[in-house]
Simulated assay, not measured.
Amino acid sequence: MDNPEPRGPHLEWTVVASDIGPLLLAATPQGLVRVEFHAGPERADGMIGALVSRLGADAWRPAPGDEVLLAEPVRQLAAYFAGDLRRFELPLDWRLSSGFNREALLELDRSVPYGAVVGYGELAARAGRPGAAQAVGHAMGSNPLPLVVACHRVVENDGGIGGFGGGVETKRFLLALEGVLPQPLF
């Protein structure tokens, strides 16, 4: 789906290398709209096709270094993995999330900083729905902006690590990067 810059509503996208594998980043003029793990070529093409359909926008993949909407997200992700960024400061396009899912993700972003974790039940209470731990788990699983809206910081109420869309080893890596878990042995 590489093509010239579109003239109408558009979706700029790229795939960047990271310490956890290739990440697909997509943005609209409103802000970052999607981060996707394990973004090999087939997965990236499928994700972009779905986003184009859902958002009604033309896709544009600029040459590396020519990003317009994604220049700052790419820079901030590199700084995060280098250990130099503790909070993403990016405009976000929330159109891929709604209802309680969005409320839980916004609460996570507001109240759980770098280097901290929260249980599913505690986050449910903070989001105004005590007892909705399972709904919080669903919200985290549907997060269109992982890493930036750090759902890897949500853990089991009993201290277990819990699940993660990028895989449990990726979650462990991210929590170790933030100093929550000991660095894994390699």
Rank of each mutant, 00 (worst) to 15 (best):
D84C: 02
D84S: 07
D84W: 06
D84A: 13
L85C: 06
L85R: 06
R86I: 03
R86T: 15
R86E: 14
R86G: 06
R86L: 00
R87D: 05
R87N: 05
F88R: 04
F88E: 02
E89M: 03
E89Y: 01
L90H: 09
P91D: 13
P91A: 12
P91W: 08
L92G: 02
L92M: 14
D93R: 04
D93I: 04
W94F: 11
W94E: 12
W94N: 00
R95G: 03
R95S: 14
R95H: 12
L96Q: 04
L96D: 06
L96Y: 05
S97V: 12
S98R: 15
S98F: 14
S98E: 13
G99W: 11
G99V: 08
G99P: 02
G99R: 05
F100T: 08
N101I: 07
N101Q: 10
R102I: 01
E103T: 15
E103S: 11
L105T: 03
L105H: 07
L105N: 09
L106G: 01
E107C: 13
E107T: 15
L108R: 05
D109G: 00
R110A: 09
R110M: 09
R110I: 10
S111R: 15
S111E: 14
S111V: 12
S111H: 12
S111W: 05
V112C: 12
V112W: 11
V112Q: 09
V112I: 15
P113Q: 06
P113L: 08
P113I: 07
